[in-house]
Amino acid sequence: MTQAYEPAGGTNARRVARMPRHREVILDILREGHHHEHVHGIVQVEVTEVRARMQALVARGLPPPSMTAFIVHGTARAVATFPQVHAVRTGRSLTEFEDMDVSTIVERMLPDGTQVPASMIMRAANRAPLRAIHDQLRAAQEAELRGITLANDRLSRQANILARLPRPLRAVVWWLLRRSPVLRKRMIGTINVTSVGMFGELGVTGWAVISGPWPLIVTVGSISRVLRPGADGEPREAEMLNLVVAIDHAVVDGGPAARFIAHLIDTLEAGAGLDAFEASAVGG
């Protein structure tokens, strides 16, 4: 990022910096989020057993799945049971896709030390095992950063071209995406999973509420340690994952939305995908 410094003097000392290109895309995403009527479920998921199983793999010298991969996998599985929550609205029509393309962000470090978010889309995540999703995320962390994406396919190149366009032309592209569910799914996916990992690193307990152009957004906050009643009624320490689930209320009514969130919690607490992951880790 090129920085220009103005001379210090009095109370007007300041630093002026050019906005990075990826911030323009983030502003577009925030503006597009205003076209959705999201309602937010602020929930907690007990991951005590899930984390214990992951730590058991580490103790055996085996790499565990990342928590982001685990949540992407569980979210896609839950949406497969309630596919209406990722339906794309165009006017008075709803397009419900069989496969769930999940968008997520991987932070990368530039040579100058600046951390930037790079996007990736996991295609048909509902049909991918946890191992495949984990491997995709790990590969993305090592992949060459190309503009705002981590791939070099045709859609990624188009996304990078979009980021370089002036705002009026980008607005035309977003207008087209709002009118073509298929193009929208191809370019940005229908589900977004965002992990605010910084919370845990800073020792902060909390949730994060974000906006975006997806009908379903799952935002991962920190893991809290709380006391909960055990099977014997005695208090025990439990690890609770803080999640915010945003669902487009123009697409789904409150009842189905609440049932989906409950099913998502059950899916994650049951450790969906861990059995097969553990088997592949031992066998691999």
Rank of each mutant, 00 (worst) to 15 (best):
A87P: 06
L27W: 08
R21K: 07
R14P: 03
P64L: 03
V85P: 13
P7G: 12
N12G: 11
P64H: 10
V88E: 04
E6P: 06
M67P: 10
F82C: 12
V39N: 02
E49H: 08
H73I: 10
E24L: 15
V58S: 15
T81G: 08
Q55M: 09
V39Y: 07
A78Q: 12
E46R: 05
R21I: 08
A56R: 08
T48L: 08
H35R: 02
H36Q: 07
H34L: 10
H86W: 04
A87W: 11
A80L: 09
Q55A: 07
A17L: 05
L57Y: 09
Y5A: 07
S66E: 11
G41A: 14
V50N: 02
A8I: 11
R18Y: 09
R51T: 12
Q55Y: 08
G9A: 14
T48E: 07
S66G: 15
I26Y: 02
F82I: 02
D28T: 01
P65C: 06
T68F: 05
E46K: 07
H22G: 00
T75F: 15
R14W: 03
R53E: 07
V85T: 10
I42A: 13
E32M: 06
F70G: 11
V39K: 00
A52D: 11
P64A: 13
R89C: 06
G33A: 00
V72W: 03
V45C: 14
V39S: 07
G74V: 03
M19P: 01
V72M: 10
A76L: 02
I29N: 02
E37W: 05
I26R: 01
A8H: 04
P65W: 03
V79R: 09
G9E: 15
L30T: 02
R92F: 09
V79K: 14
V50W: 01
L57A: 06
H36K: 12
T90V: 05
